[in-house]
Structures are given as C-alpha cells and as structure tokens.
C-alpha cells in the first residue's frame, strides 16, 4: 500500500512544492532542476508509449484471433505498423527516406482528408444552431449573420447607411468580437485560471488523487 498510495503522494507533494518555488527562483540551480524535471517527464512518457503499443497490439490481435467484425482492418493496421518500423530501420527517418515518403503520401494525406471533413460538419452544426426556435436562437442567428457578412467584402459594400454615420456591418461585427465576445471569453479564462490553481493545490495536498486511478 505504501508503494502504491503514500509514496506517489509524497513524490507529488515534494515535486509540486519544488516546482512552485522554482517558478519564483531565477537562480541557475533552479533552472537546472526545471530542465531535469522536463527531461524526466520525457523519459517517463517514452515508457508510457510502450504500454500504449502493448494495448494496441493486444486489441488488434484479439480481434484477428476472434475474427470479430471488420477484423481485416486490424490486419491492415498491424501491417502498416510493421511496414513503418521496417522502413525506419532500413532507411532511417531522413527527409527523403522511405519512412518519410510513406508518411507524406499516405498518413499525411489521410489526416488532411479527415481534417477537411470539418468544413461539412461546421455547415451541418451551424444549420442546427442557427434555427430560430427561441428568442436566444434568433439573437444567435442575427449575430452569426452579421459576423459572416462582416468577414467578407460585400458586408462593407452593402452598408449604405454608414454614409449617415450609422456603423457599418464590418464595424458591428468587429464590436461583437471585441466587446461581448471578448468579455465572455475573458470571464471563462478567469474561471479556468482560478480552477487550475485550485486543482493544482488539491493535487499537491493529496486531496485530488484521480491520477492514481482512484
């Protein structure tokens, strides 16, 4: 129990305290502590990666063995993993290596494809969000229309009323961004900052122990 509960809590308390104090100390000893701490974190993360690969292999091998639905995809996944490892071992990971070319012409292209789906999802999400079914939704819709017109040149062109001193669509959209939107964002940011500080304190004091798995 000591190794699994008390010791991690003692380490967290000590390191939390040291790193808090380190923030206020500019001395080179303090910097040395910080640099080493970051290096340790990287080393630990590398060990963590092995756990991830183990889990990954176990899941896909189990699927192939049990021949669950779509088990062929698991073969492709494991083959891809193996091919990339072999390429990296044979030819390194340089700018024109086999590994890099496989990454650029398969993985990067697929990533870009998934990312491009966002455009369609934004459209469908906007359609749902901007339906004028209540007073708040109407306000949201109006703000959205002003923002969209304010971002394109036509917004300024159609603002004929600006000649009489009434703010143009561009001006109003900028005001929405800079005033009400910024106020809300800063309110959230202040709350997040305060919440982070207290959560850190709880972790240091051992009140918050989720990271230990309980």
């Amino acid at each position: 129990m000591f190794w699994k509960k008390q010791l991690p809590l003692i380490i967290v308390f000590m390191m939390g305290l040291i790193m808090t104090v380190q923030y206020f100390i500019p001395h080179h000893v303090s910097k040395w502590v910080y640099v080493n701490y970051v290096d340790w974190a990287i080393v630990i993360a590398i060990f963590g990666a092995f756990l991830g690969y183990f889990s990954f292999l176990r899941v896909h091998i189990t699927r192939i063995r049990k021949k669950t639905s779509n088990w062929v995809f698991s073969i492709i996944t494991l083959a891809s993993l193996l091919i990339m490892i072999v390429f990296a071992l044979i030819d390194g990971k340089g700018s024109d290596s086999l590994f890099q070319n496989m990454f650029l012409y398969t993985s990067a292209a697929i990533n870009a494809t998934v990312f491009s789906l966002l455009a369609f999802y934004i459209s469908s999400a906007s359609y749902r969000a901007f339906r004028a079914h209540s007073a708040q939704a109407v306000a949201l819709l109006l703000a959205a229309v002003i923002m969209m017109l304010g971002r394109v040149p036509i917004g300024d062109k159609i603002s004929f009323w600006s000649a009489w001193g009434i703010p143009s669509i561009n001006t109003v959209s900028q005001w929405i961004l800079n005033s009400p939107n910024m106020a809300a964002k800063r309110a959230i940011a202040l709350g997040v900052g305060l919440g982070s500080l207290l959560m850190t304190l709880k972790i240091i004091l051992g009140i918050e122990r989720t990271y230990l798995g309980n």
């Binding site: 630990i44 963590g48 092995f50 756990l51 991830g52 889990s55 989720t210 230990l212 798995g213």
Partner: peptide, 15 residues
Amino acid sequence: CYDPIVMIVAQETVK
C-alpha cells in the same frame, strides 16, 4: 484513449 498513460489511469479508475 489518445495517451498511453491516460489509458493506464483510466483502466485503474474504471476497475
């Protein structure tokens, strides 16, 4: 899970 260490903690938490 996206991160292997988060996965380990999540497994412990759920267990």
